[in-house]
């Protein structure tokens, strides 16, 4: 976050800008990060291609 960003400007920016970062991995699973409350979560709708456990 920019040190020059005051609270009022932050409030105004929040209402216009994208609030969530999404990252999709090469197994098509993905995670979200909320810029608003700084929480991270798994995107439950993405379905990763889990391989069969490698048993030996």
């Amino acid at each position: 976050m920019d040190v020059n960003l005051g609270y009022a400007a932050w409030l105004a920016q929040k209402s216009t800008e994208i609030d969530t970062l999404e990252l999709t991995f090469d197994d098509s699973s993905s995670v979200f990060f909320s810029l608003s409350d700084h929480t991270t979560c798994i995107n439950v709708t993405s379905e990763p291609e889990i391989q069969e456990p490698n048993l030996d």
Binding site: M1, Y7, S36, H38
Partner: peptide, 14 residues
Amino acid sequence: YAEKQQHSLYFELQ
């Protein structure tokens, strides 16, 4: 660390 505090304050005020 200070940057995190800045966000925490704004979030809390909100």
